[in-house]
Design a binder for these strands. Sequence first.
RNA 1: GCGAAGGUGGCGGAAUUGGUAGACGCACUGGAUUUAGGUUCCAGCGCCGCAAGGCGUAAGGGUUCGAGUCCCUUCUUUCGCACCA
Length: 730
Amino acid sequence: AGICERRTQVVNWDPVDMTVLANEQVIDGHGWRSGALVEKREIPGYYLKITAYAEELLDHTLTQLPGWPERVRLMQENWIGKSEGVRFAFPHEVKGADGKLIGDGRMYVFTTRPDTIMGVTFCAVAPEHPLAEHAAAADPRVAAFIDKAKQGGTTEAELALKEKEGVPTGLFVTHPLTGDKVEVWVGNYVLMSYGDGAVMGVPAHDERDFIFAKKYNLPIRQVVGVEGKTYSTDAWQEWYADKQTGKCVNSGKYDGLSYKAAIDAVAADLAAKGLGEKKTTWRLRDWGVSRQRYWGTPIPIIHCPDHGAVPVPEKDLPVVLPEDCIPDGSGNPLNKNAAFLNVACPTCGKPAKRETDTMDTFVDSSWYFMRYCSPGSDDAMVDARNDYWMPMDQYIGGIEHAILHLLYARFWTKVMRDLGLVRFDEPFVNLLCQGMVLNQAYSRKPGEGGKEYFWEEELDVVRDEHRRIVSAKLKRDGSPVEHELTTMSKSKSNGVDPQDLIEKYGADTARLYVMFTSPPEQSLEWSDAGVDGSARFLRRFWTFGHAWAEAIAGAGKVEAAALAEPLKALRREVYTVLRQIDFDIKRIQYNTVVSGAMKMLNALEQAPRGDAKAAAVVREGLSILIRVMNPVVPHVTHALWEELGYAAQYGDLLDAPWPLVDEAALKSDVVELMLQINGKLRGSISVPATAPKEEIEKLALAAPVVQKFMEGKPAKKVVVVPGRLVNIVV
RNA sequence: GCGAAGGUGGCGGAAUUGGUAGACGCACUGGAUUUAGGUUCCAGCGCCGCAAGGCGUAAGGGUUCGAGUCCCUUCUUUCGCACCA
């Protein structure tokens, strides 16, 4: 479909990561991420043209994803990184060693502030820029600077803290509008990978340029003014860079123009000279999907000396990987597997080589969810069932997928749409990013190198009276270790094996604990004591059900009108909690769904034994409790439903309807109202539920507590909130 | 630096969105059962105070009969991005 291309792309390459992953020679397709990865290489491989969808991806991020968390939308927006401005050239006469003009005599830059072009007092290029390299050949100081700039720190933090430094090249370019000579500097803050690796320097209106100019005593020329404000080169101020309020000054024919008008005028003039035009720059780059590992999905291409890259014919698909490959640390083992490698060219039949790059795992994770909708379909990626089920109502995943997986899946969906395979733009209507599970990790730093982690079993941990960790020592030699709360990880020796939990408590306990301990979007701190608590609740639930089994079997329907107040109150509690649970499920707050279930059990446990009416109420309440807990603890509830005879009467629990709130059961004859004097809680009164406001006011004023606190003063104002409280202002 | 979300007991966290702050659970304390440990059950548990009462949702101010919730200022934590021209 023209969406995939075999070519090279300049990427940032992390030589360190390569050594870490000793068993595979990895060219990480995401290596173009700026940051820790510093070495730039031209990487050949297969690229998916996600940049062709940049505009639409951005547009849909802003308009079609209201069911996504704000922060994920923002991360995607920043990742796509749209930037509108003008790309233009500074002409020059600098010739290279070959006698030809470098860059055909044009040094291109990109700017989002073309309205400040008259304030250019210098230019800066990246250390890797051809002009910088040319200057380095003639001037050892420039060469030394470039060497230093290229070394530097490799982590993001070091890069950010690095001071902005530069060195003049002694080369000059011509300002495209004024014709002035402008000196070119090499700056360590200019990125070769963004735009053209060169920037115009407008110190008056760009904070970074301002600092740079002050440091090297370069001229600062104000070209934007705001009425009532005076420009001073002494210190940087926020408004210097403001686009909204300013107008051009000291800018010749552009004087008086606003930001937008100035951009149009400058762009038009540059275009008339053939030196520039408006341009949109993206941070997003094409997606390199080639991997030099053998276990990925094969790329179905055969390389023929005569016919180049030939697709594997459909009848020979899928290409199946050999199963006898053993990685030996010397690169992709497929390259040494003759049986896999040597094939005949599908076009001419002559000997040819199979492609040994495999696909990034993100490729298949970009549409696996659609494939689930078309199980067993042998002759298509997806069939009509996909149209029914997709787009997905609710996607749940970790925040670590906020950018790459979700962006790739959205891109893939749009490609499938353009191929006529699906009929929607976006795959995920609602997105929930669940939190991660945290646990204490214990470590020490044995001199140079990384941390050494220990399991808690290897340590003597001292805790205070509240069980908080005071200190920890290694059992075998008594040396102290540090502790920190962090994500569970194999490498940090702080993971909890689900299998151990299942063996000790059963799967339901583990589910209940995770659901109950924190809301889904928050991270969760692991606690063995908390798990015990969850097991305790399930045991009580189970014991309670069986203690009432016989009574329930003989119980009839609840006759609400015949119930005395304590049993009425019990039903009221059950249905009040059910209403709360319904509310919490809708807003995906499962921790309070569980606490609601605990309240329900607490209430039901108060029911008197040996009472037929109580048995009917318990039978009803327990049927509700079992059903609301079924999604959380499916095994325990399933067994209770069967053993208490609900299944025989109502059918399988999975088919049982969700319990409905009995509005009549929520009604109470009397309500308790809080009494406040001047907004302070002083007591409460019980009033008939039907009492009108005036009646409530009278009862409240007559209450002994109120009399006491009013001290005989008259009530200035009485606020009655029905069903809640009475506030008396004196 | 920019952006986003937070700050509530000893701890995890509730508070149906301006109306009883601390639900539910963990931990802890006392009691009962038990030969003992564990389990289970009962009671207590924000802080100060013998009590009456006072004070309490990061700090300060404001709106309101009433503020954890709304507004302003400050402090602070976590996460994301980070020389993007």
